[in-house]
Amino acid sequence: MSPDKTLADKAYRKLRAEILDGHLGAGQKLKLEALAKDCAVGMSPLREALARLQGDHLVVSEGQRGFWVAPLPLDEIDDVSRVRAMLETEALSASIAKGGSAWERRVKEAFERLSQFEEGMPSPGTERPAALLNAWEERNHAFHAALVSGSGSPCLTRLCEQLYQQSERYRRVSRMVSGGRRNVHEEHVAIFRAALERQTLKACRLVEDHILRTAEQIRLAMSLNELPDA
């Protein structure tokens, strides 16, 4: 990897984390000189990083006017959640039908890692700091990826991954504002058991409910004015 690519990746990871953690707020204008200084990179690597963030739907640009942190429109999370639920349940159904021992092993390993972490998290109603949410997100990602990994369709798997990433920012906001009031661990346990017992209809229904419940949680938070201005 060239030095510029390394610097661009460094800036990308730093800015992505700051957006997901809320340090860079929705709709905030991004000042390139300040960002370059903060990330300790030049303009070329910074612009490459910003281009990648646009691909992640975390940054938007308007012609020559500059870059902004992408807003958090409610209609987008509704749309993303519906499409993600459709594709992820299709991929899960195929994985249950086609997945062999390697798929089962991957699902078990990802679930055990996630479950152990969730069991040690603060009790419902307790504030969840950003570092804790970051660690949870990594394990949650691995579990959902494992569930659909046996579908046999690289295209479907790739689309599921893209939609998971697109919904990550909303999911983190939901986890922060909920204060843990929703018992996501129990939802994961139920999904895991149904998938491994090859109960296709039940597993798909649980995954769909799991995804759409987050959208409901976001809507509730916005109605209570708990979210920052989007």
Rank of each mutant, 00 (worst) to 15 (best):
E137H: 15
R172M: 11
R82H: 14
Q199W: 03
Y170A: 04
E186Y: 01
R182T: 14
G22P: 00
D78C: 08
H141E: 12
Q199T: 11
E208N: 11
A102V: 14
E187H: 08
D21Q: 10
A110P: 09
A194H: 04
A91V: 02
S95N: 08
A221E: 08
K14I: 10
F67S: 07
D4C: 05
R219M: 13
Q217F: 03
S101N: 01
R169V: 07
G27I: 04
I96C: 01
T214D: 14
L201E: 14
G55K: 03
I19R: 00
A102L: 02
S95E: 11
E18F: 05
S167C: 06
G42K: 01
L156I: 10
C39G: 08
H144F: 02
S61E: 12
E186R: 01
N140R: 06
V173R: 05
G63Y: 01
R169W: 12
L87M: 13
L227A: 15
A49M: 09
S153C: 09
V177L: 09
Q64A: 15
L147I: 06
I19A: 07
L201A: 15
E161V: 02
F192C: 05
P228D: 10
E208T: 14
D21H: 11
G150T: 09
H57T: 11
L224T: 09
E197Y: 00
R65L: 03
D56E: 14
R182N: 04
A34K: 06
Q166Y: 03
Q162F: 03
S81L: 04
A203K: 00
V177S: 07
E48N: 12
G180S: 04
K202C: 05
Q166K: 12
